Lab assay of single mutants.
Amino acid sequence: MAAGGDHGSPDSYRSPLASRYASPEMCFVFSDRYKFRTWRQLWLWLAEAEQTLGLPITDEQIQEMKSNLENIDFKMAAEEEKRLRHDVMAHVHTFGHCCPKAAGIIHLGATSCYVGDNTDLIILRNALDLLLPKLARVISRLADFAKERASLPTLGFTHFQPAQLTTVGKRCCLWIQDLCMDLQNLKRVRDDLRFRGVKGTTGTQASFLQLFEGDDHKVEQLDKMVTEKAGFKRAFIITGQTYTRKVDIEVLSVLASLGASVHKICTDIRLLANLKEMEEPFEKQQIGSSAMPYKRNPMRSERCCSLARHLMTLVMDPLQTASVQWFERTLDDSANRRICLAEAFLTADTILNTLQNISEGLVVYPKVIERRIRQELPFMATENIIMAMVKAGGSRQDCHEKIRVLSQQAASVVKQEGGDNDLIERIQVDAYFSPIHSQLDHLLDPSSFTGRASQQVQRFLEEEVYPLLKPYESVMKVKAELCL
């Protein structure tokens, strides 16, 4: 049975990233139509530049190519590739079939990587351009969430054990800070992308030097003109047959890092959902379990974690691919890159769409948070109580021993009897502590235990987050809708 299948058929496997999760716009960027249309555009740009620099290419040939950029006979191309065992030459023939007058000058002087690699770089750039505003929107939604809850005390956790208090907004800023680093890295790697350009079979530009009869300047002009037509500021000066596969490492490393950030955020949300302090959106008709109707599973956060793990592992592909590119190139890269580049971007696209949807509907339960604080705060307040007693004339050592005994009794009630923490009640009825009984409410005010959390939130948002989001103001209103 021949390899390949009808990918629109229910009898043929289709990647869930495309069929179930990723956005239509990201799927289109990695589609065959987008790819092969870009090949034709690159052939047109090459012909236009070659004509401008004096090669015998007519206006009629150029116009014929322009008129057929979208006229792609995919069936013919597939048949040609089956016959020739070469995808680029299959599309040269297919393009030439609908451009008979231009057929002889299509791909003039070029090698397969002229269309293959340059198209990949265009796709990487455009895919990054799709991700950047999506990530900015996630940051914006979380920034709104953090600002609104900047002063809401909550129990902090280290080692997932109760620690000092923080605020809900401050905790959210930990998430935002990681995503801001990801946004900066995505922008950097996007701006650092260079075009492969017009380089020939081993990167020496020998074929173009021959076409222009040894004119170095025209060869350099050709490279520059096509690079500018493709919208790049610069091209690699040095290439082998391909652009260095280190570029793929750079791009997928940034995406993998984004995956790590999203995994951490969504894990926190899942843990908070278990504590009943916070939940992701839950639709009115949504079913959490087929057997347990009360369940409210954090399905979206779980999906993000599941896909983020996949995204983090994909960076190993370009690392290994770059390491086995012998001399000017081997074909070890080809099949692998067809999979890992598309999957990385479709996965990143999915987790950003999902995280935006989550961040637009996060639900906080202040009463649950308050109750958990009441359970733990008495123990945390013991040092403040000791200091207040010393100020009232008591002995630190005597007070410490009193607190120690009462704390152990209260802990026994919590752990052995399943009761509430009654340390404060014990202190309130103990005559030894009568000098500070009137101060206990103040000493137990949760806001006095959150330090500068709310001020940190305000400063972080104003100095770091809002300036970073400013270039994306025009796209901030787009909502994230999930079908599944």
Results as ranks from 00 to 15, higher is better:
P446Y: 04
L124A: 10
K101I: 13
K284I: 09
K147F: 10
Q285K: 15
S15G: 15
G54Q: 09
L482I: 15
N421R: 04
L469A: 09
M312A: 06
Q458H: 13
S112E: 00
T202C: 11
I424D: 07
A322K: 05
R404I: 04
L482C: 09
L314C: 13
D430L: 07
A348L: 09
T382A: 09
F36P: 02
E148V: 12
D11C: 13
W175H: 00
L142T: 09
H97M: 14
A136V: 15
F208W: 03
L307W: 06
K479V: 11
T58W: 10
A322M: 14
G96E: 11
T350Y: 14
R404H: 06
E417H: 07
Q205A: 15
Y365C: 12
K75H: 12
S359D: 14
A335G: 14
Q41V: 09
T119C: 15
V251R: 06
M476W: 15
L311N: 00
Q456K: 04
R337M: 03
L209F: 13
D398H: 10
I176P: 01
E401R: 12
T119D: 05
T321M: 10
C98P: 08
T58Y: 12
C98R: 12
D420Y: 05
L355S: 08
P293M: 04
D178A: 05
Q458I: 08
E463T: 10
E213Y: 07
K170Q: 05
K187C: 10
E250P: 07
E328D: 06
T158I: 00
L209N: 08
I427D: 01
V414M: 11
G116S: 14
N185S: 12
S334Q: 05
L142I: 09
Q285E: 09
R337H: 04
G419E: 14
M278F: 10
V363M: 09
G54S: 10
I57T: 04
E279Q: 05
M76G: 13
I176T: 09
R396K: 04
L135A: 09
E417W: 09
V390W: 05
D120E: 15
D182T: 01
L211Q: 11
M316R: 04
G419N: 12
I249W: 04
E50L: 08
K415Y: 06
M387R: 03
A342T: 15
T330I: 03
L443I: 15
G418D: 02
E425T: 13
V262P: 01
M292N: 02
C305V: 06
I287Q: 05
A392I: 08
V254E: 09
D120K: 07
G4S: 15
G200T: 00
A411Q: 08
E48H: 06
S395F: 07
E401H: 15
P446E: 05
E463P: 03
Q241E: 03
L255D: 04
I249D: 04
G214L: 10
Q63I: 11
V324I: 09
Q51F: 07
D178T: 06
A78E: 14
E343L: 03
G104W: 09
Y432V: 09
V92N: 08
G259D: 00
Q241P: 00
N353A: 12
F460I: 05
A381Y: 09
L124Q: 09
S9V: 14
L440T: 03
L193P: 03
L341H: 15
R141T: 15
Q286M: 01
D420K: 06
T204Y: 03
K470W: 13
D248Q: 01
T330Q: 02
E463A: 11
C113H: 00
F36Q: 15
I436P: 05
S289Y: 02
L124D: 11
E481Y: 11
E81M: 00
I339H: 13
N353R: 15
T52L: 10
L314S: 12
T119K: 02
E462V: 10
T52S: 13
D87L: 06
K233H: 09
G5I: 14
H7E: 12
I386F: 03
K199Y: 02
F282I: 14
M65E: 00
C483L: 11
S23H: 10
L55W: 07
K246L: 03
V390I: 05
D445W: 10
S289P: 00
H437E: 07
G393Q: 08
F232W: 05
E64R: 08
L362Y: 06
L211T: 15
I373D: 01
I385G: 03
E50W: 04
Q356L: 11
I269Q: 04
S31Q: 09
R188Y: 02
L209R: 10
S395G: 12
R337Q: 03
L352Q: 07
R141L: 14
M299Q: 14
A291Q: 03
D129N: 12
S447Q: 13
L183P: 00
E464W: 07
G197H: 03
E220A: 13
R194K: 13
Q61S: 09
V168R: 02
R14V: 13
L258G: 03
M278G: 04
D216R: 07
N274E: 09
M76R: 14
L346C: 09
T38V: 14
K246N: 03
V247C: 12
D420L: 06
Q63M: 13
I122N: 03
G288A: 09
F282M: 03
F433C: 07
D445A: 13
K170C: 03
T38N: 05
F460W: 06
H7W: 10
N336D: 07
V92P: 00
L152R: 05
A49K: 01
G4N: 15
C340A: 15
L307R: 02
Y13K: 08
A480V: 14
D332M: 03
Y466A: 13
H107T: 02
C173R: 01
R337P: 01
F195N: 02
N185G: 13
H310A: 09
K75Q: 11
I123N: 05
A411E: 07
A143Q: 04
L193E: 06
S438R: 09
A136S: 15
W175G: 04
N71F: 13
A308D: 01
D73Y: 08
E302H: 01
M89F: 10
P435L: 08
V219H: 05
H93D: 12
P446W: 03
K199W: 00
R188N: 09
G393S: 06
H437W: 12
P435K: 09
L469N: 05
